[in-house]
Design a protein around this nucleic acid. Structure first.
Ligand SMILES: [Zn+2]
Ligand SMILES: [Zn+2]
Ligand SMILES: [Zn+2]
Ligand SMILES: [Zn+2]
Lengths: 146, 146
DNA sequence: CCTTGAAGCTCTAGTTACTAGAGACATTAG
DNA sequence: CTAATGTCTCTAGTAACTAGAGCTTCAAGG
């Protein structure tokens, strides 16, 4: 049995984060010691490591919740799990495309600066006017994660 | 003079977002009509378009605040503005690197699935165990934007 | 046995950049 | 003049934590 501190150190997750995961129901309520402190089994460590790793791979907590509940049902077909991973890959690819365009545009903007005063700086101007842009980096709001 | 709705339509920014920008001091308090409705000048439209475009380029509101205050001081050297753009470029490149690693890893994980039941699915297993990963995608917390 | 420091507990609030909704007032088209 | 749309303020909610206050429990040293 591990205390919350040991668990966090083992899984690479901060203690308040573990309590947060419990609070939102991503981790089950932990057993408690006589003194009301949380105690964790090896299985709990595995579950937390799964969460941590999936977070590192960019999955949302919602997706992780689904993955965990799937992994608790071993005789279901795995297509649902794969679909979540495929969706995450698509998300990553979409972000990559967007960020690639941003990179190109920012580099291009930076080349416009010849130094000097702000009044003459083409960088400020380029930031203000999309019609000076070479690429179309205006995508409908991709949210934000990773 | 534009109403808030026209302003938003012109700049491609939703009305509540404009009010939010005013609330956090990114836009100055707008003039008001006799009936207490906000009225905006052409200059306000330019400022809002600047904000919108900079957001599209992934700048945070904090960075945009700094850029705006720099652009209000035309005889300052432009190095400070450039530095903000350079930092943003670095941020974008760092995210690109991270996302590139994630993409590779997610693709690799997906190849492990041979279909079938979850109990045998290597995808779930791979998600749970970083030692099965081929790349090192564990970077110290990059926050999240874009 | 006692003390002290670290680790744990609960609870609240703050972060980013908005978005949604309630309930009231203003403006405009027909 | 009325109905529809637009605008007003204010509050609260989103994702995934993080920080802090004020309290209790635990482990080790003297
Ligand atoms: Zn410059
Ligand atoms: Zn542009
Ligand atoms: Zn599978
Ligand atoms: Zn991994």
């Amino acid at each position: 049995m591990l205390t919350i501190g040991k668990l966090g150190a083992s899984a690479g997750v901060k203690v308040p984060t573990i309590r947060y995961y419990e609070q939102i129901g991503l981790l089950p309520e932990a057993e408690r010691s006589a003194g009301n402190q949380r105690l964790y089994s090896q299985k709990a460590l595995e579950r937390l490591a799964f969460i941590r790793h999936a977070r590192d791979l960019g999955f949302t907590l919602e997706a992780i919740r689904d993955l965990l509940s799937l992994s608790d049902q071993p005789d279901q077909p795995c297509a649902a799990a794969d679909a979540i991973v495929i969706a995450q890959l698509a998300e990553v690819e979409s972000r990559l495309a967007r960020l690639g365009a941003l990179k190109v545009e920012l580099q291009r903007i930076l080349t416009q600066c010849a130094g000097g005063k702000i009044a003459n700086c083409r960088v400020i101007e380029a930031l203000g006017d999309h019609s000076l842009c070479a690429t179309d980096h205006r995508y409908p709001d991709l949210g934000a994660t990773i």
